[in-house]
Design a binder for these strands. Structure first.
Lengths: 242, 242
DNA sequence: CGCTCTCTTGAAGGTACTCAATACTAGTGG
DNA sequence: CCACTAGTATTGAGTACCTTCAAGAGAGCG
């Protein structure tokens, strides 16, 4: 049932840590069963191969995507061909931010992807009839805004190892990976994606991994498998730096 | 009528560039007259002196603020007493982002401020009755998310002058300053605020101003008065760098 | 099994940071 | 109205870190 082709196993899902106080303080499902079915009915479930574009910056925004499996990124390209990743997107996330009817960035999958393709056309009608859904999206957007502000904080750190430390503790929470042990982590993206997200060169990311490992904060079990040995130390590095 | 004490001159106002296509593509008012009055009725108009805290990170989020005059900032403090500005807020903006019922950052005024203090308590009730208002807030949050992502891009630039160039073209549009000529700009914040926003030292900001002036992109008419002589050159600097 | 992409490691150079000292501004009180 | 003072801004010198360029090692896929 984990197969990517078993279509009926999936349904729209949006999670976020709410604006208001809750019992757990963790991310919760924002869509009621009825809302999931409403979105399901108006959407198309798409499967996307690894490293495939979802849309291009400046093109007409016709869909937003609700990821249910896999990982994606949004990014900007500079005239020099340089790349900056603005966000990593995971299951229960929405992708497709637009401005004045046009996507504000490029977006592509980093792994094979399963997502609901929701036409913006119909979405507006659903929203005016369902204030609860509006509120859910509002919560999700607040969540994304906090994530983005946190990203800006991370990128503004001056030491590469501090940026990487900040990234690792963030992704540990954001990307719970299904069967996650508490400090075992399989990174779903390559070094150069991390570099582009952190505003570093891939070489610096590599050296930063080295540094954190020598400090005893992490251990590498392979290129993508990281275990976070000392999370408090990582948080200290991320906070104290600069 | 420009006096800060002339209370009746003010009303709630939220502006943003919409998600969807519009004629102008510029920021528009998102509140209808009825919505302005609804918010007006439930809010309190507050005036805040320069450099005064609006709220503290981690405290219970009871209000959001709709700025109608002046400038504010949200920021984080590191254990070392280092400061990072996450956002500058202008008239027609909302301040008071929370997570799980608690503010996610500190916020303070940078100039004397006039704002509507909107209790979150009542806001939720208004939102369930008025889907149009939800949609307006949704648009505003998308706007803020784009701003924050742009901020992350700016901060990830490696050259100080590129970061400053990016900041100047951004603030030119975001902070239309009332009586703005097209490329005359009165910065509402001090150098160290800019430094904390850009992730630089104040010294580097100073040298970057020097650099841009020597390049002929800008001219300083005083400490706070800048004229943007060659905006395309500034944009090129911001885009090409790294 | 070999090719390609990815990741790591090394050396040289550039840029921002820190520390420190000097202008300058603005707001206060005489 | 002016002098004083505290905060703000600039300028300079030395250090540390990241970037770039280059080469080599390791994975993954056909």
């Amino acid at each position: 049932m984990d197969s990517i082709t078993d279509i009926d196993a999936y349904h729209p899902s949006i999670k976020a840590v709410p604006f208001t106080r809750t019992a757990t303080g963790t991310a919760i499902e924002l869509l009621s069963i009825a809302e999931q079915q409403a979105l399901l009915k108006m959407s198309r479930l798409v499967t996307v191969p690894k490293y495939t574009k979802l849309y291009t910056k400046g093109s007409e925004a016709t869909y937003i995507y609700n990821i249910v499996k896999g990982v994606a990124e949004t990014y900007h390209l500079t005239p020099n061909g340089n790349k900056r990743v603005t966000a990593f997107l995971f299951p229960h996330d929405l992708v497709g931010l637009a401005e004045n009817g046009r996507y504000v960035s490029d977006a592509q999958s980093l792994t094979p992807l399963v997502a609901f393709q929701i036409p913006l056309e119909g979405l507006r009608d659903v929203l005016v009839r369902d204030p609860e859904l509006d509120f859910g999206l509002l919560s999700k957007l607040c969540h994304e805004l906090r994530r983005s502000q946190n990203h800006a904080l991370t990128v503004s750190l001056n030491e590469a190892s501090a940026r990487l430390a900040s990234f690792l503790v963030w992704i540990k929470d954001a990307y719970a990976d299904g069967r996650s042990g508490q400090d075992e982590l399989i990174l779903p993206m390559a070094r150069h994606h991390i570099a582009d997200y952190l505003g570093l060169s891939t070489e610096s990311v590599s050296r930063a991994f080295n540094h954190l490992e020598r400090l005893g904060c992490i251990a590498r079990k392979g290129l993508r498998a990281i275990s976070l040995i000392d999370v408090p130390a990582l948080e200290r590095l991320a906070a104290q730096s600069d």
